[in-house]
Design a binder for these strands. Structure first.
Lengths: 115, 115
DNA sequence: AGAAAGAGCAACTTTCCGGTTGCCTTTGTC
DNA sequence: GACAAAGGCAACCGGAAAGTTGCTCTTTCT
């Protein structure tokens, strides 16, 4: 089974960025990574929306693989799953690198024509 | 004028991630950074949607500061504006770092209680 | 045992988003 | 000047997404 690498990367990256593209979700993530794993109610008072809204956001983040939830008694504990974030970082770095190279080529071309 | 740094960063970061959270837009960005600045029609045949759809996406990207367009004759040339992407990368790195530190603190706590 | 805390499920509303179609303006070229 | 190429503008549509409210269920605590 052959796969085109760049295309696969691209399709994989979009949902992660989409998951990060909401201020409430970003706030949840920030809270999760400063204060560690915690329950929904604790996460809720970090935001300004309902508990159910936070629940939906957590499921969205879980669908993107950014977060993981485990049951503990009557509480559901959510924790960060940083691998996908690292992947996203790599992807952005790669884009910046490619762009820098393109600019370098362009500059070389210009200087060659007009030294 | 005083500003809360983390909050400002958070609010600024969300629109950039939202802009990156669409496969078609990611494809446009990839095309822009491999093949350099180019017009809408050239960008359109890198995707599988209409020219107007591409135009909308470009405006969305411009609103997020990821891309910039200049008029040249009857063509509109769009080019990447990598600063925001670099900012986004920094933000993700910072989150990962904070998370690692939180994990380290947690581990230290556990080993202290149960050596 | 009974109350309260934590959470899940479902329905509903409102707004936004991706995409298309249709038409008009500007610019370049023969 | 006529025609084609590039693009802007506006209306429209279907679906997703964010958020709320209301109810139920399980677990814990007293």
């Amino acid at each position: 089974m052959r796969r085109v690498r760049t295309s696969t990367q691209l399709v994989d990256a979009a949902p992660v960025f989409a998951a990060l593209g909401d201020p409430t979700r970003l706030r949840i993530i920030a809270r999760l990574c400063t204060s560690g794993p915690q329950s929904i109610v604790r996460l809720t008072d970090a935001t300004q929306v309902t508990r159910q809204a936070v629940t939906k956001h957590l499921h969205a983040l879980a669908r993107a693989g950014v977060v993981r939830g485990t049951r503990d008694g009557r509480e559901q504990i959510w924790e960060l799953q940083p691998q996908r974030l690292v992947d996203a970082t790599r992807y952005l770095e790669q884009i910046s690198t490619q762009w820098d190279e393109a600019i370098a080529r362009l500059r070389a071309l210009v200087e060659q024509d007009d030294p």
